[in-house]
């Protein structure tokens, strides 16, 4: 009661936001989870929807693809993002312009980046033409015809789009490392590689954690890019859930979403348990 008395004005201000999030986010998620445990025909509670899903080849493929695209995409984004961030930490002529150009994909909607990469990875697209001109291939490669190639194309598309965010997050982390740390390691005679692995990376850990978590959650939920670039050839969990919805299989759609939520939660738990041990998020904000 004391709490309410002390904060009545604040609570009043928060109320609309809280009600909205409760009614339009928490309740729907609970409804989805509940729906996923109901049988489509009888409405009885049980695991029949899950049995139906796991018996389907497409669904298992969707789980595999979702995890694969996250691993491939995140690896690429962290490596390339860190590289670009380190370059941008130096002072050089035209740095402002380069920084702006690196931010360019941020100004391109995700959907549009999918369309653009369609022109690049299409069978008659620009990548094939480039490889042809360079003499690497003679016959065009069908990049988006399905299978593992599609995963790489989508991971690439996703990476291109989000690299600015990754670069900015890592750059902020790099810039927060004080210079005397580097001076000290130079005095101790550390080589550049040693400095990178024993000084920069450990100090960058909070930023890397933040980036990993934000990116992984988005990457698991990937939806627009596969819809544009892969159609139904390469299912992902989110697009699979939509497909079941569009066939009016609401229970199956709900179950696919629940599995997706479960994967995200498992990832977070494992990450904080084994990689970060709770130092990352606390360092932020």
């Amino acid at each position: 009661m004391k709490f309410i008395k002390k904060y009545y004005f604040e609570l009043l201000l928060i109320l609309p936001l809280a009600i909205y999030i409760l009614g339009f986010t928490i309740v729907p998620i609970l409804k989805t989870i509940l729906l996923s445990f109901q049988d489509k025909n009888t409405g009885a509670f049980g695991f029949s929807t899950y049995q139906y899903l796991f018996a389907k080849k497409d669904f298992n493929l969707a789980i595999f693809n979702t995890i694969a695209v996250t691993i491939v995409g995140l690896t690429f984004q962290l490596v390339v993002g860190l590289f670009i961030a380190m370059v941008l930490k130096y002072n050089f002529k035209g740095k402002g312009l380069v920084r702006s150009l690196v931010l360019l994909p941020m100004g391109v909607p995700t959907l549009v980046s999918g369309v653009t990469l369609l022109y690049i990875f299409g069978t008659q697209g620009y990548l094939n033409e480039l490889l042809y001109k360079l003499g690497i291939i003679t016959k065009p490669i069908a990049w988006t015809s399905g299978g593992i190639k599609n995963i790489f194309v989508i991971a690439f598309a996703d990476s291109w789009k989000v690299l600015p965010v990754v670069v900015l997050l890592l750059l902020a982390g790099l810039e927060s490392i004080p210079n005397d740390v580097y001076e000290a390691s130079a005095i101790d005679g550390a080589s550049k590689t040693q400095t990178f692995f024993y000084v920069t990376l450990p100090l960058l850990k909070p930023s890397i954690t933040m980036t990993m978590i934000l990116r992984a959650v988005d990457s698991f939920r990937i939806f627009e890019l596969p819809k544009i670039l892969a159609g139904r050839v390469t299912p992902f969990l989110a697009t699979y859930a939509y497909d079941e919805y569009s066939y009016n299989n609401l229970n199956a759609s709900a179950a696919a979403s629940t599995i997706l939520l479960l994967i995200i939660i498992i990832f977070m738990v494992l990450y904080f348990r084994f990689v970060d041990r709770g130092e990352g998020v606390k360092g932020e904000k």
Binding site: P28, L35, F223, A238, L250, S257, T258, L260, L261
Partner: peptide, 8 residues
């Protein structure tokens, strides 16, 4: 996952 919210 937003597909899970969008459904209900």
């Amino acid at each position: 996952p937003n597909v899970g919210i969008a459904l209900p």
